[in-house]
Each structure stands twice: as structure tokens, then as C-alpha cells.
Nucleic acid binder design. Structure first.
Lengths: 192, 192
DNA sequence: TCCATTGTCTAGCGGTGCTAGGGTCGAATC
DNA sequence: GATTCGACCCTAGCACCGCTAGACAATGGA
């Protein structure tokens, strides 16, 4: 019995190692550098071992995305918890969101840009993703204004933030005036 | 002399063929399917011919992006030209933008997501890209409101639209309520 | 007619994600 | 304690990728 348990523990540990290594490598050198060979070498196993844990590279990206979504939800809630005033909470949320994206670009991509084989905006969407959206909704729903469905408002505000993140990181927007752009979004979109 | 001219014409024609074929293939099957082998086969030349026109795949994407940016500027201007009222023009612009993205997803990606080796938000940004931004600015600058720099407003509104496009197309947002989201953006962000 | 240049192709390099098949090693059984 | 059996992991290889070197043919000019 105990032998099997030990093996299962080791397996779980190795799976965590794979995800952590993939994430680390992606943050260091970008997702293009995360090849199955390099990843296998870093964890000191052969390539096929990866496929005994994940169906393929896509699922590894998906695992990183789920981990990241959980962290993002925590970060957003932490940033808004101690703030008074709905509008101020939204400003704090926006800053926290952009900060998370800036600090974890590869994870952000895994969650919002890459194909990790995950279902989004769906009933069988993984819990971490639903919860990340819920974290946004908690603060953003308060400033939706009359006649605007909180979910729809959250989606729209979120899309605006996402647009800023991706265009800036892709070099399409100069990074200097990010704060002013965020201020504009909060000032105009949020209604209390 | 004339021989050289004829050859140059043929070369230019073939270059257009490469770009058009790459674009077509990308729209049909996605950019991942645009491999140098497949592209070469479609234009009925061998792979190395591609490299006598472009430095690599990146530059081909860049060429598609420039072509697309020109068309997008035309589309945006056409949609706003005959509309009365600044606010209504912005609504028309938003619809035209989303429509362009929906009709030309691969081209949209080439312009705004992929690496085509182009300079953005820079002095030596290619003219088509500058002009596409200018087309947005023409209508959006009118509703920036007092104390908000038109360029900054345009960037922000554009980012919001871009966020809607990318999140929707990546399956992160359900496509059903796009119109309501756009209405929200126009209603709240635009000031006249 | 010969040469030189231009243009194009074949073949191949090192890389990718992924998998088939063999071998090894450890746990359970007699 | 010996033996069998099964789980596990690795080597090797597939088809494909972007890109390029070098051979070869065709074409215009001397």
C-alpha cells in the first residue's frame, strides 16, 4: 500500500516540477524556448516522461495557466480588499491587473493568449479561471451603473485592460503613458 | 533595357503573388499552416525563391500586415465619412473595426499580434501603420473630451476594441454580447 | 559561338512535437 | 530466497519546421 502511495507522491512532485520548470523557462526566455527537449533536460528526465503526465505541450501551457489564474485572483483580491470606495477599488484592481501582467508576462500569455486546451466562458470552465473572473467581478460589478449588467461591464472593462496589456507588450503602444490610459478608463467607465 | 524592366515586373508580380497566397492560406487555415514549404508549393516555386524576395517568414507576415493596415484605414474612413455627429461616427468606427477583424482574422493578427519585424509607435514606423492609426485618430480625437490628449484617448479606445477582438477570438469572451459591450464603450468613453 | 551572369532547384542542416518499442529494475508471489 | 511479472523510463526515430549551400540550367551580351 505504502509503496504505491510513495510512488504517487513522487509522480505528483514531478508533475509540479514540470509545470514550475515550464513556467520558469517561459518567463526567462519566452514560450518559444519551452521545447519538450529543453524542458525534459531541465527536469533531468527524457522527453517521453512529459507525455506520461500531459497529453502534450498544450496541456503543460494549460497547467501553467491554471496556476497563474489562481495567483491572479489572489493578487486582485489582495489589492482591492483594504481599499475604501468602489471607484478607488476599481483603480486598485486595474493597477494590480497590469502589475500582474507585467511581472508574469509568460503566465499572462498562458492564461489569455495561448492555447492551453482549456474551456473558457463555458459551464465546464476550470474553477481557477471562473474564480479569476469572479475576482474581477467582485469589484467591477459595483461600478457597472444602472441598466448595465455587472457581468457585461466586467467583461468590457477587462477587455480594455487586456487590450492595454497586449498592445503595450507587443510594442504597438508606447509604455510611457499607461497610467494615464488606465486613469481614463477608470474615470469614464466606472459609475458609482 | 526593356528586358530588365520586364524581369522586374515579373519579380514584382511574383512578390505580390507570395503575399496574396500567404494571406489567403492564413485566412483559410491559420498562420500555423503558412509554412514555407506549403507556400512555395502554392505559388509553384521552390522554397528558396521565397528567400529571394523576403528575409524570412517574418517579413512575409510583415508584408501582409502592411497591406492589411492600408485596407483597414480605408474601411474605417469609409465607415465614418458619411456619418453625422461625432458620437455616431465613433460608434460607426467601432463597428467597422470589429467587422474588419472578424472578416480578416489572420490579417488582423498579422497587424496587431504577430511579429512581422515592423516598427510600431516609432518615428520609422511604416506609413500604412501610421495612417491606420491616423484614421482612428480622426474620429476618436473629436470625442476625447477636455483635458484629454486626443492621441492618448485614441490609444485607449483602440486598446479597448483590441481587447474585445482578441479575447472574443481566443474564446475567452462569448461572442453573443459584443454589440452591448461596444455600446458601453462608446457611451461611456466618448465625450462630446 | 562562347562566356558570364542570373535564376532556380535539389538536397540537407539543425531544430520542432510526439511516439513506438525495447530494456531495466523493483515489487509481489511461490 | 529465487522467480516471475509489471510498471517505468530511455533510445531512436517519425514527419514536419525555417532556412541555406551548392549544383545546374537558361538567358542575354560580347
Amino acid at each position: 500500500m505504502s509503496v504505491q502511495e510513495r510512488k504517487e507522491r513522487e509522480r505528483a512532485g514531478r508533475e509540479r516540477l514540470i509545470v514550475a520548470t515550464a513556467r520558469e523557462l517561459a518567463e526567462q526566455q519566452g514560450w518559444d524556448a519551452v521545447t519538450t527537449r529543453r524542458l525534459a533536460e531541465r527536469i533531468e528526465y527524457s522527453q517521453p516522461v512529459l507525455y506520461s503526465h500531459f497529453r502534450g505541450k498544450r496541456e503543460i501551457i494549460g497547467a501553467v495557466a491554471l496556476q497563474g489564474a489562481t495567483e491572479m485572483a489572489v493578487a486582485v483580491r489582495a489589492a482591492t480588499a483594504a481599499v475604501d470606495g468602489a471607484r478607488e477599488r476599481v483603480a486598485a484592481l486595474a493597477r494590480a491587473y497590469l502589475d500582474f501582467a507585467a511581472r508574469n508576462p509568460a503566465v499572462y500569455d498562458a492564461i489569455f493568449q495561448l492555447d492551453g486546451g482549456l474551456a473558457y466562458a463555458h459551464e465546464d470552465t476550470p474553477a481557477p479561471l471562473k474564480d479569476a473572473f469572479a475576482a474581477l467581478l467582485e469589484s467591477l460589478g459595483e461600478v457597472a451603473g444602472d441598466g448595465v449588467e455587472p457581468g457585461l461591464f466586467t467583461e468590457t472593462f477587462w477587455a480594455a485592460l487586456h487590450g492595454l496589456v497586449t498592445l503595450t507588450r507587443a510594442g504597438r503602444l508606447p509604455p510611457e503613458n499607461t497610467e494615464q490610459r488606465v486613469k481614463l478608463l477608470v474615470d469614464r467607465l466606472a459609475v458609482d
